[in-house]
């Protein structure tokens, strides 16, 4: 039995920021009534997390929950735990209107870290990335160059950028170009 192939194959680039393939992970799209007690309980049971506030991420030992839209979360967990999390959600939400889908293979995750991380993203995304404005725990869905993308900032200062698998090379290439040595803007730290 073969193992899954990650879209970026462990690629890494060290420039103004470190751009690296975050590797394989479990991802689940969960849609439903985020305000309902049932949903709250389901996510708590499945991942041990609450429902994140608007455009926020919550992280714990079991994984992370990212707010994607008023009726959608992206749950991140270990890749081999996806089936279990989905089963747990389906169990908890049985009879209710919801959607839980394994999307682990649909996306690529790129980690952007280092002193130039904010500027690297700011070259590609129309988002205010000033340290006082974009703070840890925030999630932003936006445009990266010419593709849709989402990123969130964890508590250790790492940005996690999520895009569709088919454009992983474009996203990685664009980030490397933006982080090329010599291009420091010198604005965001």
């Amino acid at each position: 039995m073969s193992e899954a192939v990650p879209p970026l194959g462990g690629a890494r680039f060290n420039g103004l920021a470190m751009i690296e393939d975050a590797g394989l992970m479990g991802m689940i799209t969960l849609r439903g009534d985020l305000a309902s007690a049932a949903m709250k309980a389901a996510v708590k049971t499945a991942l041990g997390l609450g429902i994140p506030d608007q455009r926020q991420a919550l992280s714990g030992e079991g994984g992370s929950a990212l707010w994607m839209s008023p009726d959608e979360l992206l749950l991140i967990c270990a890749r081999d735990g996806v089936a279990q999390v989905i089963a747990s959600l389906e169990d908890a939400l049985a009879g209710r209107h919801f959607l839980a889908l394994n999307v682990s293979d649909a996306r690529a995750v790129i980690r952007v870290t280092g002193a130039g991380a904010r500027e690297t993203l700011a070259k590609l995304c129309p988002v205010d990335l000033a340290p006082g404005t974009f703070t840890p725990g925030m999630v932003r869905r936006t445009r990266l160059g010419q593709i849709p993308a989402a990123f969130w900032l964890d508590g250790r200062g790492a940005f996690h950028l999520i895009c569709f698998r088919s454009v992983a090379d474009y996203a990685f290439g664009a980030l490397c170009d933006a982080a090329a040595p010599g291009g420091a803007v010198g604005v965001h730290g």
């Binding site: 608007q54 455009r55 839209s69 008023p70 129309p126 988002v127 932003r140 936006t142 445009r143």
Partner: peptide, 12 residues
């Protein structure tokens, strides 16, 4: 009004 983002036209 749905996600609270104030963004530029290219996002819409």
């Amino acid at each position: 009004p749905c996600c609270g983002v104030t963004g530029e036209e290219t996002e819409f």
